[in-house]
Computed example of a mutant assay.
Amino acid sequence: MRFLIIIPAHNEEENLPFTLDSLQQQSFKDFKTVVVNDGSTDRTQEVIRKYTENDSRFETVELQKSDHQPGSKVVNAFKNGLKTQNSDEFDVICKFDADIILPANYLETVEYAFKNNPEYGLVGGLLYVEKEESWVYEGNSNKHHVRGPVKAYRKECFIQIGGLRETLGWDNIDSILLENLGWKEVVFHELHVKLIKVKGADYTIRPADYYGRYFYFLGLNRFLAYIASSKEAAKSRSVSFFFKIIKAYEACKTARLELKISKEEQKAINDKRWKILKKKWLKI
């Protein structure tokens, strides 16, 4: 199988070398990497050039500066990299971040999984962050969900779900849609990927606004959005946080902001969330 790896990068001169070095050190060699330089103002372009000039498996795309908004910016950069390639030449499409360090057997493990499990549509490892001079599990999501920085899609699955959506929540929308189409999402717990930078550190959006917008763009109906908001408020032990999230969610609904999912996809997402809710809380 042949891999196409797209890496959006914005001001990653310090982190990107670790990511690209870890790709060069992979035991599996049949891949092409496209690094999308998304309006960087540091030395990111110079870092990329060191790899593109010495390794034919590395290419780059230059974009002008865009607003740093959660979800839409990174997916837009990904799509700009993807459209420069002929997808017919590849079997696996990966969206990786520019601040990760992959274990040497990462691509080999992914390739073996796809070859031997035709029902697998999305696979990946677990993210680990550095804490007190040791690497610990990030813990921002459950261990059965492939996180945004390490996505590897079987091409047929990627095409069927309509690719990635330029919206907040894209990395949850994909997993729900592919499962609805009969594909499986699988996380390999033995694949520990080091995440160098804390996610969300560059976002200017406030936490409450983030969650309110996230629940809206995920397509959640009002009932499920309120349930999800109460869970986040409970984690923060703040009643006011709940109302701030709801305010942001309702503001999006009032403005009728465009969703990047169809009515059918929205229904599938709500059905999935309702199913999880009944199983977890109502024991149905």
Results as ranks from 00 to 15, higher is better:
Pro149Leu: 03
Gly139Gln: 00
Lys184Glu: 14
Asp88Trp: 10
Tyr226Arg: 09
Arg165Thr: 05
Pro118Arg: 01
Leu257Ala: 10
Ile276Pro: 00
Leu177Thr: 09
Val123Asp: 01
Ala234Lys: 09
Ala98Leu: 00
Phe31Ser: 02
Ile176Ala: 02
Val35Arg: 01
Phe217Gln: 03
Leu259Ser: 01
Val34Lys: 02
Leu257Thr: 11
Arg213Thr: 15
Gly162Glu: 13
Lys235Ser: 08
Lys260Trp: 08
Lys263Gly: 07
Phe114Thr: 02
His192Val: 04
Lys244Val: 00
Gly148Val: 02
Ala104Met: 02
Pro118Met: 03
Ile159Glu: 14
Val123Ile: 08
Ala248Tyr: 02
Cys157Val: 08
Pro17Tyr: 11
Lys278Gln: 15
His68Asp: 14
His145Gly: 15
Ser87Arg: 08
Asp88Ala: 00
Thr167Met: 13
Phe78Lys: 06
Phe243Met: 10
Ile7Met: 08
Asp97Cys: 11
Lys235Gly: 08
Leu257Tyr: 07
Thr52Pro: 10
Ser134Trp: 04
Phe18Cys: 15
Val150Asp: 05
Gly71Ser: 11
Ser66Ala: 14
His10Asn: 09
Phe90Lys: 00
Asp99Cys: 06
Glu13Asn: 01
Glu133Tyr: 15
Ala233Lys: 09
Gly121Cys: 13
Phe31Arg: 06
Lys194Val: 05
Leu20Ile: 07
